[in-house]
Amino acid sequence: MNPEKTSDTALRSDMLEKEPFDFAKWWDRVGILVVLLALVALMAIIAPNFARVDNFLNIARAISVNAILAAGLTLVILTAGIDLSVGSIVAVSGVVSVLAAMAGIPAPVAVIAGMAAGALCGVVNGALTAYLALAPFIVTLGTMTFLRGLAYTMTAGQPIVASDLNFKALGNGYLAGVPVPVIVMLVVYVAVWFLLERTRYGRHVYAVGGNAEAAQLAGVRVKRVVTSVYVIAGACAGLAGVIFAARVISAQPTAGTGYELDAIAAVVLGGTSLAGGRGRIVGTLIGSVILGVLSTGLILMNVPFFTQLLIKGIVIIVAVAIDSLKQRQFIFSRIFKR
């Protein structure tokens, strides 16, 4: 008999016996998905024209820019950081890619130039945060303002329309009936999922967010990891900016204003803790979809814009409150066990 095998089966039955259904754990995994499905069902019933394939594709395309921002931001928030500059990066990278395309640079290179501009902004954010030990909130508040100014400066404050933009398919094209931005978004999510769930780097990201000091003492190069997450967030914002520019076929210095807050909302809705170390990228995607479904549904129901903001605000607070109560429940159960 193989001794390895026996211990394995022993392990299995052990797990089965000792793990009764745990609501908190179950909610942790699928709770947000339940919320999304309930929301979709509700909208399908009360909002006219909601439950149609083309509407779903529209929602998907509408959320793609925010969802790509939120994907990069998830890494930053997992390390207990924050990046407020991603909205401004959307504008800067859009401007860079449009200007590049107008200078006759081929489409793929123009797209990459936009992403590289975003990544470069991330290098600045990350290096200031990690190596000068500045608070990321303040650093990125500064770069948010600076980069917005940079976008205005590069465009002299006016939108630059490029009607024959060579990469406009990135925003407006379809591939097998699916909008290109949606495909890009899904690729980004698969890539980030793989990075976080399957690579050593991903485990290091969680470790840094879970306990930076312990990570350092466990041999994780904390400063490098911290820098890198801002670079990834910058590159994602850069990609989002390029898609946005392609979608509106122009460079808009005001592009992405306020997007950082929607992205943060999506990440937090998705269950990632602002304290770092806890969260899943799939949650962020669902969080983005919830925000998208909510806006579209409310628009279809002709709810006034002001009221939409009221509802969105409440949804965000309720979601965070649920998360916090869950945490407290855990602490309570620990105390009573003793």
Binding site: R203, Y206, A207, G210, N211, E213, A214, A215, L217, A218, G219, V220, G277, R278
Partner: peptide, 18 residues
């Protein structure tokens, strides 16, 4: 607790990290 472990993370991750 403060310097050694990642309290929220699984035992497996805590052991394998280094």
């Amino acid at each position: 607790k403060e310097q050694g472990l990642f309290l929220d993370h699984s035992v497996e991750n805590n052991i394998a990290i280094s």
